[in-house]
Write a protein that binds this DNA or RNA. Structure first.
Length: 536
RNA sequence: CGCGGGAUAGAGCAGUUGGCAGCUCGCCAGGCCCAUAACCUGGAGGUCGCCGGUUCAAAUCCGGCUCCCGCAACCA
């Protein structure tokens, strides 16, 4: 595996502002990117917008925009701003109307063409005169348009370019056998594998330009435009220089992880690798040293969630605006909630009651309260400073409790590394909160079992050891949650008298080591990390 | 037989090498008082959808059934 981490989100349609669903994907990618950066892995995090879709044109007209490009520019800014406000640390934001994308798409198309995998054929579709639009088979009821059942559908034939995907059926199945981790979770693996086995056919990859007002022209044939999915997938390459900067491309490609919603897993797992296999035949830039195609390493499909039990839908008007949510909750709390509450890869439900529940219980009562009580006691009993004790002995002073000290935290770090590798941030967070040995739960128990608030009157030396252990644990907890809650982590570190930026530069291996908190460090107690919610 | 997912305590969920059924919230009782009315302990509450099979042992593997839910070529 290459020593880099290149993670992507889907590129989003800009026919509306971001809602909580697209924020979910982007937050997950952001947390994974932050986790890898913290580990010193060269990381590239890409998101962007899909601007060559007919849908955008319709949205622009509906919004009364003077022209399409103005509308696209306006919407792209809205998306960028939303991500900025939510603390999304993307390294690049690609728009598929950009010149660099067009150049890369052209190069890719030419490569596939040179490989002999593009051909022309007639393509027949159903056209409803009532709706004045083409209908897909899935939109039909009993072979008729559900809105105009008494008007017969017209069969409209059009000559399009096709991609000879079927030629790669065996290669795909081989890929699935050799690298089962390519498609995750496993439930999706089975779905895609059986789809390719039984129903894998060539894809139509262009439309007549006169019927499609937007999109990239087919190289060498101005009368046709490239079908939006064929161009969209290539964004993962054009953003890192394919078609414009070979050196940059070599640095980042292949992608480590494509994070997608379950609805578009098919395009990413069945179409995209076949496209690359074809293009790689004729473009050495897409070949590994042994000549094999450079395919993305992994595609992970997360589930969808409902809002209070209902599907996210515009007609219901229940699409939650993440920026609105950020006015009520610290956005770190929303990030925590989404990544913790919904099993990654499965469907879930977004409910305000559950969010409040997690906020006050997990964050306020366990994490926030632990930090607060431990720092308050230390400051009170030890002159506002980290107690002056030997770190090594402080880690082993509590053999009679559940708390396992330095070795327990080391074990917890190992779980965290495994979960990050598997992209299971929900499991990672669960472990930080309730793993046996060392976790937020056992740390709170340690306070009860040792009762430093009483112990201080009898045995100040042992109290110092207890509080040092708890303070040091808080420091490590801060770095554990940092990828998911960067602001919260910094808030904890500040109270512990740490400078987050200079600490970070030491590298995670140093930060993980027991004893990073120096005795005598000035504490800064007082800040409440998770203020109680106003009762409404 | 189109493909696939789910069914575990009042609610929401964990539980992928088969080994005494767990977590969070809520509820009841107690402890503590450092802390954000927070923390800790104990308790009540489950035929792990139904039927059958494999096994010393199945929520976990196999077969059948019931009920929900997605997807089914142009739709993040």
């Amino acid at each position: 595996m290459k020593n880099h981490y290149y993670v992507t989100t889907p590129i989003y349609y800009v026919n509306d502002k971001p809602h909580i669903g697209s924020a979910y994907t982007t937050i997950a990618a952001d947390a994974l990117a932050r986790a890898h950066r913290l580990r010193g892995v060269p990381t590239f995090f890409l998101t962007g917008t899909d601007e060559n879709s007919q849908k955008n044109l319709e949205a622009a007209e509906k919004a009364g925009a003077t022209d399409l490009q103005t509308y696209l520019d306006f919407m792209a800014e809205i998306w960028k701003n939303t991500w900025r406000e939510l603390g999304i640390s993307y390294d690049d934001f690609i728009r598929t109307t950009e010149e660099r994308h067009h150049k890369g798409v052209e190069r890719f198309w030419r490569a596939v063409e040179k490989s002999g995998d593009i051909y022309k054929a007639d393509y027949e579709r159903d056209y409803c005169v009532g709706c004045e639009e083409f209908k897909t088979p899935s939109e039909l009821m009993d072979g008729k348009c559900p809105l105009h059942p008494n008007r017969p559908l017209q069969k409209v034939k059009e000559e399009n370019y096709f991609f000879r995907a079927s030629a790669y059926k065996e290669n795909l199945l081989q890929l699935f056998r050799d690298k089962p981790e390519f498609i995750q979770p496993v439930s999706r693996y089975n779905e895609i594998k059986s789809y390719v086995e039984r129903a894998y056919e060539d894809f139509s990859i262009s439309r007549e330009a006169k019927k499609l007002a937007c999109g990239i022209a087919v190289p060498g044939d101005e009368s046709q435009r490239i079908y939006v999915w064929f161009d969209a997938l290539i964004n993962y390459m054009t953003a890192v220089g394919y078609g414009t900067d070979d050196e940059l491309f070599k640095k980042w490609w292949p992608a480590t992880l494509h994070l997608v919603g379950k609805d578009i897993i098919k395009f990413h797992c069945a179409l995209w690798p076949a496209m690359i296999m074809s293009a790689a035949k004729s473009d050495a830039l897409l070949q590994a040293a042994d000549g094999s195609p450079l395919l993305p390493e992994r595609v992970f499909a997360h589930g969808f969630f409902t809002i209070e039990g209902y599907k996210i839908s515009k007609s219901l008007g229940n699409a939650v605006d993440p920026l609105e949510l950020a006015k009520t909750f610290p956005f770190d709390a929303v990030r925590y909630f989404l990544l913790r509450e919904i099993p990654f890869g499965e469907d879930g439900d977004f409910s305000l009651a559950r969010l409040e529940d997690r906020y006050s219980s997990d964050l306020g009562n366990r994490l926030g309260n632990l930090v607060n009580r431990v720092i308050a006691m230390s400051a009170k009993y030890f002159d506002g400073k980290v107690p002056n004790v030997d770190a090594a002995s402080a880690s082993q002073a509590f053999a009679d409790t559940e708390w396992t000290g330095a070795s327990g935290l080391a074990a917890l770090w190992q779980i965290i590394e495994d979960k990050i590798q598997a992209a299971r941030l929900d499991h990672m967070l669960e472990a930080i909160w309730s793993a046996q040995g060392a976790s937020l739960t056992t740390a709170n128990k340690l306070v009860e079992q040792t009762q430093p608030f009483k112990l201080i009157k009898q045995d100040p030396e042992k109290t110092a050891a207890v509080l040092y252990a708890l303070l040091e644990a808080c420091r490590q907890f801060a770095w554990m949650v940092e990828p998911v809650m960067p602001h919260v982590a910094e808030g904890i570190l500040i109270q512990l008298g740490q400078d987050a930026a200079s600490e970070r530069s030491k590298g995670l291996e140093v930060l993980k080591a027991w004893g990073g908190l120096k005795p005598g460090t000035e504490l800064r107690p007082g800040t409440v990390l998770f203020p109680p919610l106003e009762k409404v």
